[in-house]
Amino acid sequence: MKEQFEPNVVAFLCNWCSYAGADLAGTSRIQYPSNLNVIRVMCSGRVNPLFVINALQQGADGVLISGCHPGDCHYMEGNFYARRRFTLMKELLEYVGVDSRRFNMSWVSASEGSKWKDVVQGVVEKAKEAGPFEQFRRNKINW
């Protein structure tokens, strides 16, 4: 058998809930796979849907957007906009044949350290199943 494929997942986390939740997982020393790397933004509403296309193009095998639960957004409405945008982005990606396991969204609150672990495990697992996404690669850092 080939060497185990290690997927590469890029995640966008809002500062107030999900990033804090991920920090809590850390403080609680909850272990999870190291295949996911986080970009911190202030709000899930900041995540430009084109970031997702870009991440997949740049080499991510999976993408995760995570924000506060609906109604808990630090900025009241940001995650509502995010939800609409990424619902549509997900549909679009699937429609052009991007494996649906590559795109994920979650609500993780600042107190959900263990949910964060579950989310990471799930997302990494799914990206692993989906395999490397070479067809769409750009493979070049635009420093």
């Binding site: 740049q58 991510a60 850092i141």
Partner: peptide, 21 residues
């Protein structure tokens, strides 16, 4: 654009995290 979180500041982060294995 949001200061300190501009598209052109975030895209390189995405590139690095995506391309580096």
């Amino acid at each position: 654009q949001q200061k300190s979180f501009m598209d052109r500041q975030i895209l390189p982060q995405i590139a690095v995290l995506g391309v580096m294995k």
